[in-house]
Design a protein around this nucleic acid. Structure first.
Lengths: 198, 198
DNA sequence: TGTACATCAGTGAACGCGCGTTCACTGATGTAC
DNA sequence: TGTACATCAGTGAACGCGCGTTCACTGATGTAC
């Protein structure tokens, strides 16, 4: 088979392609193995079909790769939430509910990416801040509609965010505990903090 | 100095002492480094002042050591909560508040032990179950006193536990967010889920 | 009371492995003249 | 149009390290007779 020899090497001028291929490989490893510790330089380059040394053409260190991976995961997470809100229509409580559902679906379907962007140690401030600002907007609209305008919106948002994050993290523990499903929990959470307006 | 030569070796019949010394060493490493991955067999035995081979006199594998460490951490956590409840007196809401404060203090003072017993992956069912049963008892007493006796206690407990766990995990993220302090948050959380009874 | 033996609580050297990182090299593709 | 050269996108061998684990050994302390 002397058929067309495939270009095994990235064409000239597009060397940056390998960079995203390496991030892809790292994401796949994290998704499969769960622990970012498995995304070693050698494992990532092996998966990308490239020699370990090629790694250094695009990253100065393993930490730099993980930072890039977290940044990508965060973009995807935030886009997922935005889509959930947009699909929910104009009503404030519907929008908050849509965000909550999207949040929990992401955490459930991609637990390892979720774990990467909300790490136990050295939390990424950008994640907290940007997501939290989004959430505060949704909560403020609900509070206004519910007539609890005098409430401290920031505190309400903290309460709701804590609840949803805790539920996402604990959700798989304790088989003997009857966990409400995502939809039900988001509803209960909004009612608990924002009153029975809906 | 030919003073009394210290017994550098555990006296006969008390070989089990090394077992707990190894767990001590592992706990110290986790507390200092944050990540259980650093608690390798060699690092643990080095810290305990013993040869790597001595490890196998007491544990069949590294995983067995980590299991023992988690079990110990969980005992300490549960004892801490029980003490917080006992010190709070007989009033149901005071007791729930005491548990919540103790929970958050433990998570704040010993974040790495907390992270070990509420791991992101492979959650330990015993932890979830035993702690959750404790919590359900406290919540049931509050619900009864608050006159929301018709409410689903299990669901209320899920909501409160999720909130407190989420707050504990997120608490250090986002410096620009104004987090309520532990006491205030526990109060808000109880009021949100159990009504304004207190 | 002495002494041979068993047990206990370890040690020390060695193995093969995967890791991060460095170094010198390669071979195709473009560009200047 | 040819050709020398530069650049790009990598490769391959090697290093020293810490790791888990195995193996044969040691030396003090107790026990049977």
């Amino acid at each position: 088979m002397a058929a067309a020899p495939q270009p095994e090497r990235t064409p000239r001028g597009q060397g940056e392609l390998l960079r995203s291929r390496l991030i892809d490989a790292a994401e796949a490893i994290v998704a499969e193995q769960g622990d970012p510790a498995h995304a070693t330089i050698r494992a990532v380059t092996r998966r990308a079909g490239v020699s370990p040394t090629a790694f250094y053409l695009h990253f100065a260190s393993r930490e730099e790769l993980l930072t890039a991976l977290r940044a990508r995961g965060f973009e995807e997470f935030r886009a997922c939430l935005a889509a959930g809100v947009a699909a929910a229509g104009p009503e404030p409580f519907d929008r908050l509910h849509g965000a909550g559902r999207a949040y929990l679906r992401f955490a459930r379907e991609r637990p390892n990416v979720y774990g990467l962007i909300f790490p136990r140690h050295e939390p990424d401030d950008r994640v907290g801040l940007a997501s939290f600002e989004d959430l505060k907007g949704l909560v403020a609209a609900c509070a206004e509609q519910a007539g609890v305008a005098d409430a401290d919106v920031e505190t309400l948002a903290v309460g709701i965010w804590s609840g949803i994050h805790g539920y996402a993290m604990l959700g798989r523990a304790g088989k003997n505990v009857r966990w409400p499903d995502d939809d039900e929990f988001v509803g209960l959470l909004a009612r608990a903090w924002l009153g029975a307006a809906r």
